[in-house]
Each structure stands twice: as structure tokens, then as C-alpha cells.
Amino acid sequence: MTDPAAPDGFYSSPALDFAPRPGEILRRRTVSTPHLHGASRAWQLVYATRTAFSAPIPASGIMITPHTAEFARRSPVLVYCTAFHGLGGRCAPSQLLAGEGSEPETRFIATALERGWTVAVPDDPGLGMTGLGPHQFLAGRAAAHAVLDLARAVRALSELDSAQAPCAVWGYADGGRAAVWAAEQQPRYAPELDLRGVAAGAVVADPGALVAEIDGGRWAGLGLAGLVGLSRAYAHLPVGHILTDDGHRTVQQAQELDAAALLATYRNQPLGRWCERPDPWNDPLWRYVLANETSGRVAPQVPVHLYHGTEDALVPVAMGRGLFAEYRSLGVAVSWREYATSHTGTAAEGAADAITSLASYLQHRPNIITRPAPPSPQTT
């Protein structure tokens, strides 16, 4: 009998000495998704991607085809980005969607499958793969690369006729952040993808402002998770200088926890408890890191649908309104919808409009004005 607590060899990290192409499939296996309504065949994938600073790294995800036979091949591809699942542990979406089907966002994925779309769900960078953690939470460029490279991997899967398939991206909360970063990075990082549009709800557009807002409250565990995730993403910088000895021990413990454990363990505990100063986000080095993680500085070349709840107690609606205004000022084809409900309520209530927007985007190729860009090592 297989020990459920034993490491899964499929998710062991392969050596990338050969510098694989971003999106290249390194490992794959078929899996069952019996609890996912509308699903047909599914594959767990390990594929090549890049960190925020262009280093090759393996990532994992899952790809699911719709049950409707006429759409099983040549169907549009939706990359669905889940909300924050944790820094470590067995909480990767590609694992939760298979077997017992305990992924909390299953209903949104099922809705897309019912549309006849192929759905690809990336695990967050550093999550799922053995030995690569913790998850690089809040690192926008790394998340964008994982999203776009999974779309590339789907195009390369031999069982599908998806090489020319149009694609879209959808996400909420941290998943919404990954979605807009993918839209911003796509023209330079993955220009060959036929990206048609993006839907993103409750986007964490300014992590620095959010961390200061939630510090010491019920969501304080997410602030600590952001410190851990960005420390991993910016490991080439001495970002750990702000931590006390107790802080280093706390970080070591936190990087093994899923979202529920992080929120329960560190509720109402300010970051200053583990740092040399009470406001670590105001440290000059961390100000640089957090400023570098602000969305809305680059114009997506595809339509974007943003939505947010006016009663959102986690991500203030003003943050979403600000991103909408930034995109409008950049000339992006952006739409906006508010819902008079909470963070969780908006995820459910806004799904129908998000799907409708995505369906419209997938039917029409956007009128893109191509802007020349200098060569980038990320696209080689």
C-alpha cells in the first residue's frame, strides 16, 4: 500500500543543466479528476519556466480537457490561476484537483470546462515541486512566467491540437495578480502566444500597501507569507537583514505551512515581532522590492476585465480602482465591475461576468499595435 505521506517522485525537481526552453515539458502523467464536473482527460505536468530574474526552474501544473467530444481538440485554452494556497505542504492545485478533488476553486474550473475550454492550472512558483520552496508569494514576474510557460506547454502536448489555439487567463486575489502580471509580461516574454484577454478579481496591485494594511490583524499571516515569498524571489539581495534570530526561526517554520495554517498560527501578530524594526516594509531595501512588485506600470496589449467587492476586508476596493485607473491612463481596453459584497462573496458573484468577458475575448482577436522591444534572454 502506498504511503499517502510519502513524497511523490513525480514532483521531484529535475536538474536543468541543459537549459530547457521555457514551456518545455520535462515530465508528464495522466491523472484522474473524478470530482471535477465537465472534465475528460487530465495530465499533471512538470515544465520549464524562469524565475523573476531569468534563471531556469521547473514548475508543475495540471491540464484538463472538457468532456464535450466536439471541443476536446482545438478548444480554446484558459489558464486558471488559483488564489494563495500556502507556502508549502501538500496544497498545490495540481495535486488537489487529482484524486480526492479537494481543490477549493473546483467550481470555477468546472464552469470553464462546461464552456468547452481546455483548462490549465499552474502551481505557484516553488509550490508542488520538491526542494524548490517556499512558494514565491507576491513575486509577480515569476508568477507571470509560470502562467505563460504553462500555456506554452499545453500547445506542445501531442494529444491535443492546440498549437494555434487562442488562450485567456483568469484569476482572483493572488491569482488575479498572476493574471494581470501575465498580461503585462506576455508581449515581451511570450509574444507567440495568441493571448486574447484576461479577467482578474481583487487584484493585489500594490503589495507594500496591502502588507501595511493587514499587519497585526486577522490576515497578518499573509504579511509574513509575503515576506517569506519575496525573500525567496529576491534571494540575490540581502533582504533577510531585517530579521531577528527569532524571525529566522519563524520564517523557517512558516515556509512549510499552507494558507489555513499560516492564518491560524500568525493571526494578530505584527511583522515587527520578528524584525529589527516595527515597520519592516519601510526598510529601504524592502521599499525597493515592494515598489518593483507594483502592477499597472506596463500596458497589456489585450483586453482586461477587472472586478472587486466594495466590502472586501482583505484587499481594499481602492486598490482595484487604482489599477483600473492606471490601465485606462495607459490606453488598455479595460472594463470594471464592482459588487456590494465581501472578498469571498465577490469571487463567487463575479465569476459569471468574468466568464462572459473571457468568452467574448476568445471569439475576437484583439487589435494589437505591435511595439518593438529589444531582445530578451527570457525569450531564448
Rank of each mutant, 00 (worst) to 15 (best):
residue 206 D to C: 07
residue 173 A to W: 05
residue 196 R to T: 07
residue 199 A to C: 15
residue 186 Q to A: 12
residue 138 L to V: 05
residue 280 P to F: 03
residue 49 T to M: 00
residue 321 R to V: 02
residue 361 Y to E: 10
residue 57 I to R: 15
residue 185 Q to Y: 11
residue 293 E to G: 02
residue 304 V to S: 04
residue 295 S to R: 08
residue 102 S to H: 15
residue 342 S to V: 06
residue 301 Q to G: 05
residue 79 V to P: 01
residue 125 P to G: 05
residue 255 Q to W: 00
residue 75 S to D: 08
residue 98 A to T: 09
residue 210 L to A: 03
residue 358 L to T: 09
residue 281 W to M: 10
residue 297 R to W: 05
residue 57 I to L: 14
residue 165 A to W: 00
residue 2 T to Y: 06
residue 59 A to C: 12
residue 113 L to T: 10
residue 265 T to I: 05
residue 181 W to T: 09
residue 2 T to N: 09
residue 196 R to P: 06
residue 221 G to S: 00
residue 311 E to I: 13
residue 224 L to K: 00
residue 54 S to I: 14
residue 271 L to A: 01
residue 370 T to Y: 09
residue 75 S to Y: 08
residue 6 A to T: 05
residue 239 V to I: 13
residue 209 A to E: 15
residue 110 A to E: 15
residue 236 H to I: 00
residue 30 T to D: 09
residue 182 A to E: 07
residue 370 T to A: 14
residue 167 C to V: 09
residue 293 E to L: 05
residue 230 L to M: 09
residue 277 R to Q: 13
residue 58 P to L: 15
residue 85 H to Q: 11
residue 164 Q to P: 00
residue 244 T to I: 06
residue 371 R to T: 14
residue 89 G to H: 01
residue 303 P to E: 07
residue 207 P to V: 15
residue 114 E to F: 10
residue 143 A to C: 12
residue 184 E to F: 06
residue 147 V to N: 08
residue 245 D to T: 14
residue 165 A to Q: 07
residue 324 F to M: 05
residue 81 C to D: 14
residue 147 V to D: 08
residue 87 L to F: 01
residue 344 T to A: 13
